[in-house]
Design a binder for these strands. Structure first.
Lengths: 190, 190
DNA sequence: TAAAGTATTTGACAATTGTCAAATGTTACG
DNA sequence: CGTAACATTTGACAATTGTCAAATACTTTA
């Protein structure tokens, strides 16, 4: 089940047998239903997840309204970035949008591996760079584009989410409300 | 001149003499005037910089208008994230807003160090995590907040830029136009 | 220090997007 | 198969922000 993840890992920096065994031992597989909360507002995120099957979103609440900040699909590494890296309670929720299977590792165990398998940092650095790049692409979407442009960019950059994620969530991700998105879709389809 | 940077570095993971010497040898110090472009639209960013003195911004052009995406001050590591990490030409400009002194290293030399000083990846991983966190905080600003809220958050999160950066740039960073920002400042000061 | 250049503020009006209410469409399940 | 629950669309109107033009304030330099 973890093999695709190890393959990706190995393509960045050779993964030794010993490290692979350690990761297999430390990664805990959990299976959760749809709409299950892996993290809530005010909690510190102590785990990083590999999403093996399913779909996740992160969101936060502003004026009693949910604002989606990210969608994550299979083979992706998932966490609440600010909370996990800064070791503080955050404002983000992390929730499954489909029944999901995840591998997770606790922050402390991860640090143990970083210290004892120094080459593990090479791969982690590269992966962090990749997710940082993705994050900047999401942010670019939000800046100074019209509602319609944001939706078009979203379709281009993240076509797979369009099929799996309800419109309300996409609308809040794109910084507009559901009705506006609906009108834009209507306009574009003509 | 590089000592504060090395100190910061050393506090994350011990910096060996050999690595320190290598970094000192590889880092090239450049001194540039105000409004100097380190990177332009359509170019690939081949350097990562440490800003020793001065002030930078990154921006891009949308419909003939400049949109600031980031401000960077002393001791910070500066690059065009998407271009530098993905090795592709990007859309971003990187420009000094004050006369500046920077240390820079070429992408290829950096990779050389990553491969030959494997512990260098530990520090780089942690630093990438820190900048990723900062980037997510900037993005949080942009999502579903009113113009006034965005400005207040900016004042709280990045007070030092308020003194050094012209309002036009701050306005475009916050996704509003200059006149709107001016009215908000007026309203708040009452 | 005066003049030119740049930065910020103000006003009037237009365009875009949000809000609320209701209608319609779709899905899941007893 | 019908009903409830949920998702999406549509309409009327309000609020926010943008645009353009002009006035004022601040900086730089000859």
């Amino acid at each position: 089940m973890l093999q695709p993840f190890f393959d990706r890992y190995n393509s960045i920096y050779p993964l030794s047998e010993e490290l692979k065994n350690t990761l297999e031992k430390e990664l805990e597989i959990i299976e959760v239903p749809k709409n299950y909360h892996l993290l809530k507002d005010g909690q510190r995120d102590d785990y990083v997840y590999v999403l093996l099957k399913g779909l996740l979103r992160t969101y936060y609440i502003k004026d009693d309204t949910e604002i989606c900040s990210r969608f994550m699909e299979e083979q992706h590494i998932c966490m609440s970035v600010i909370s996990f890296f800064s070791r503080k309670a955050g404002y983000e929720y992390m929730e499954t949008l489909e029944p999901s299977i995840l591998a997770r590792i606790h922050y402390d165990r991860l640090q143990f591996i970083y210290k004892n398998f120094i080459e593990f940092n090479y791969t982690a650095r590269v992966m962090t760079e990749q997710y940082f790049t993705l994050s900047e692409q999401r942010t670019y979407l939000l800046r100074k584009h019209t509602s319609e442009e944001r939706y078009v960019l979203f379709m281009q950059q993240f076509p797979s989410f369009l099929q799996r994620v309800p419109l309300t969530y996409i609308a809040s991700f794109l910084g507009m409300n559901l009705e506006t998105l609906s009108r834009i879709r209507n306009k574009i389809s003509k």
